[in-house]
Write a protein that binds this DNA or RNA. Structure first.
Lengths: 345, 345
DNA sequence: CAATATTATGGTACGCATACCATAACTACC
DNA sequence: GGTAGTTATGGTATGCGTACCATAATATTG
């Protein structure tokens, strides 16, 4: 592979002049530029970024660690990150962590060895060691979607508490009193925040404290299935369910379907996260839609901002609003309502 | 940030000895190892891969260019690539190309500048200039999912022709004679291959040539919607549809639903690509499932193989089999059959 | 005991592009 | 005509880890 010296020799100039042609910097006469460009073409020269990267410790690369790209929510976040990065000349190294702190640590090490300019990451736990590891190396980090205990870290997340609050209020307004919340792990802030929002709405409605029923599991379909089974076994059974993410909602629907419970006639269901519209025939679920793309995009902009303006500025927490989309999975309790929208996706 | 010399000084050894400790290579006494590790911890030293990367032209990084990660098919491919890469100490730089050759070219250039070890890519067109560009730089490439004109390029794809052939046969066996195929662009091999399989099955069934009805659009929901509208306007109308990918199938279902056409009572529908099971309450579509994860995984293994064994070996085309999953979207034509499975995802 | 193998450590050169500084020719202006 | 600015080009030093070769001490073998 030819290097800048080969090109320079061929064009009869110094390497630095070739560099100037490539980067459109400094002064180069038209004639010289022409000769250099000719030499570049003839040799098929592609500059080696590793040189300057090593020299100036700038790789123009960001690390992006998400829990599982297979979840359409994260997919969309990734897309937002990528687009924002590319628009600014940055590229993305991707890693799926499957919520495992061990995998996070392993990735982290490899990313640091590559001298990534900055990190976008979703920590497995709120008191994540990973964020600390990065901060020790003085690399900018932006945490996606979740809160962390370290108050000096930039975070971009959506309003989980508020969204759950509104979803619960929607159910209360319809007349529901027995609402069960199905959520994820205790360690994940989105999981606990959504419970907080639910509890807040329930409390404000002056419902008896034992009306508050929270089932803790994880953000998976099977867990949603199991939690729904448990929730329905309680006496009196709930007339509405709040699923804390899309997978839990699907698991809930699966169980309800098997159990012959109709939605929304027999039970109402609200959920966090929309299902991808590109795969949806007839949107059915009443949901709190998180601005996933925006989250990725804004997090990246925040990170790039840190990169150019240094780490001095105060840490920033961007909380994106959540949009409640009322569709066909909710109705009045008991006798049902006129909505007979079939259960469709 | 400390470098290997700082560590060496602190441990009272030469840099090369630190290197040996880090990489577990050569001979190091226990005592020296202990001292070096101590120094590494104290300084929080993380080796800088850029040094050796520059020196030996190996970045342990692969470039992965897919059309759009938002499509669950690609998401799964990406997951397969990532897992295979990580198991072998490689990492992934990701790019979404949105089927635009321009974006591909731009990414390509940046990836080459980063001295990526190898490429995994989905070319926009069959006669893609991008593949040629990479080959000129002597970087190994594996093409994903699609055929390319250059016979010397490694390809990992699924059996589009065979899958479409089987899907069509399934419809024919049910007694359908008026089957319309809804497919993507002329330029994408998966699109044309699936038409070929369809045509082959129709021809072998000795149906009159004008029974073969192909609608060309693209792999999107809106295109599927439009093509379905056109397909149904033909006289006599089709009793079955073959959608060449998941988005087209969803678009078709949307139109059918709006038009009040029931599936499978009034019309049968088969499709390429499954919808993600994690988001599916009740799988409904009869589909040809592509082994997306496998495709990514095997393509990566093939690429890594090339990397270690050189580019001398003959080019290889791996064609993965497709699995036909018969579900509830297909039945006998006309009077319908007993299957009353509702349209669910 | 001499010869060979093993263990342990170190010096040097290398890969690449560019920031920084220096040089020099030419132009513009009062 | 001298000073300051503009245009054009080049030399040198730098960032980092390790392959390669060299050295030397210790252990092993016949």
């Amino acid at each position: 592979m030819p290097n800048i010296r080969d090109v320079a020799k061929r064009a009869g100039v110094a390497p630095i002049t070739v560099s100037r042609v490539i980067n459109n910097s400094g002064y180069v006469s038209d004639e010289t530029r022409r000769r250099v460009e000719e030499a570049i073409d003839e040799l098929g020269y592609v500059p080696n970024m590793l040189g300057p990267s090593l020299r100036f410790n700038r790789t123009n690369t960001l690390a992006l660690l998400v829990s599982d790209i297979t979840n359409p929510f994260w997919t969309t976040v990734v897309r937002g990150v990528e687009d924002a990065a590319n628009e600014n000349g940055y590229y993305i190294i991707l890693g799926n962590t499957d919520e495992s702190e061990e995998k996070v640590t392993e990735y982290l090490d490899m990313m640091l060895r590559r001298r990534i300019d900055g990190f976008l990451l979703v920590p497995g736990k709120s008191n994540s060691a990973s964020v600390q590891m990065i901060r020790e190396q003085n690399i900018p980090v932006v945490v996606l979607d979740r809160q962390v205990s370290d108050p000096k870290v930039d975070v971009v997340r959506s309003d989980s508490r508020g969204g759950a609050y509104q979803l619960t209020q929607h159910l209360l307004a319809l007349g529901h009193q027995h609402i069960s919340a199905l959520t994820g792990s205790h360690h994940i802030s989105t999981s606990t925040d959504r419970v907080t929002g639910y509890t807040q709405a329930m409390t404000e409605a002056n419902l008896s404290p034992d009306a508050i029923r929270v089932f803790w599991g994880d953000f998976t379909q099977t867990s949603g299935f199991e939690m729904t089974k448990q929730a329905l076994a309680v006496d009196p059974p709930p007339t509405a369910l709040l699923a804390a993410n899309n997978f839990i909602a699907i698991g809930a629907l699966k169980y309800l379907r098997e159990a012959g419970v109709r939605v929304p006639e027999d039970i109402s269901l609200v959920a966090f996260d929309d299902l991808p519209l590109s795969l949806t025939i007839d949107p059915f679920l009443t949901v709190a839609v998180q601005p996933a793309y925006e989250m990725g995009y804004q997090a990246t902009e925040l990170l790039l901002n840190r990169l150019s303006n240094g780490t001095t500025r105060d840490s920033k927490e961007i909380i994106l609003p959540v949009e409640i989309v009322v569709r066909k999975s909710t109705g009045s309790p008991q006798k049902g309502n006129s909505l007979t929208g079939e259960l469709r996706l």
